[in-house]
Computed example of a mutant assay.
Amino acid sequence: MRIVISQGSDKYLTARVTQKMSEVIKKDGVNARGKRGVLDDETGLFEGFDFNQNAIFGSVVYLKPEVSVNRQTGEVLAKMPAHNSRIVIAAPRGATHYRFFGCASNINFELSEFTTLDDESDFIEVGNAAVPETVLDVSLSDGQNQNLNLTSPIFVTVGVSFFQDVNGEKYPLKNGSYNAVKIAKVDTGV
């Protein structure tokens, strides 16, 4: 999830992920203490996790992402509903544009293997214009829609980043401190 972490996280992210992972591991009721691990069905505790405590997704974007996961084909879509950016995006002062971004990660904790794909929208101007539905295609497929039958947990992350337009060039605002990122869905596969 490097792409989303680099676009919107705070300096305490590692500590907060460690704390959440500790909660997940403590839910392992199968293995003895000291040998507990990550059980796929408990990874759902990460759903709603915000990567940037300085910019909570729900207080920056007043939309609920619609996420669909097809484990057979690997198709993963995150849709941001049509909206008016002036009403549903709490853009920081100086921002002229924003863009949505996201990723899907299929993580096998037992084998320490993962696959991650990311996508981002075009730049969207902050203003009163109607913005059509934005679809982020973060599909984990090989493009041939073969029967992948993914069994490990799939984490779908969605975020927003802000920019300022200066003479046609888009510059990120303040090293991403205003960017909001959250885990919109965890499909545990169980």
Rank of each mutant, 00 (worst) to 15 (best):
S6E: 15
S139Y: 12
G189M: 08
I3G: 07
R99E: 15
A95K: 00
T116C: 03
I89H: 03
E110D: 13
S6P: 07
G102M: 02
R16S: 04
D119M: 11
V186R: 00
F109T: 00
T96H: 01
D122R: 14
R2D: 01
F109E: 01
E169I: 13
N54R: 12
F123S: 14
F109S: 01
Q72N: 15
F51L: 04
M1F: 02
T43K: 02
F155C: 01
F123V: 11
G143T: 14
E42R: 06
D118E: 10
L77E: 06
G143N: 11
D122Y: 12
M80W: 03
Q19H: 08
I107R: 02
E120T: 14
L136N: 05
A15M: 07
F155W: 05
K64W: 07
G168W: 07
S177P: 00
S9F: 00
K182S: 11
D40K: 05
S59F: 11
G176E: 06
V186T: 03
L111E: 09
S139D: 14
D41R: 10
E169M: 14
S161A: 15
V76S: 06
E23A: 04
L77N: 10
G34I: 04
P65W: 06
V156K: 01
L13T: 06
S112N: 11
I25A: 02
G44L: 05
N70E: 15
G143L: 10
E42D: 15
V158I: 10
K26E: 06
R71C: 10
T116L: 02
Q72S: 15
E47Y: 01
G94S: 06
K27D: 04
R2I: 00
D41Q: 14
Q144R: 15
V76Q: 05
F114D: 03
S121Q: 08
K11Q: 10
D119S: 14
E47R: 03
R99S: 14
N145K: 15
T43P: 02
P172R: 04
A104H: 06
L136A: 04
G102V: 03
Q164L: 07
A32P: 10
S6H: 13
V67D: 01
E113M: 09
F114A: 11
F100C: 04
K79W: 09
D28F: 06
E66L: 10
M21N: 01
F109N: 00
I124G: 01
L117N: 13
G74E: 05
K182L: 09
D10A: 05
F162E: 05
F163E: 05
K35Y: 15
E133T: 14
N84Y: 12
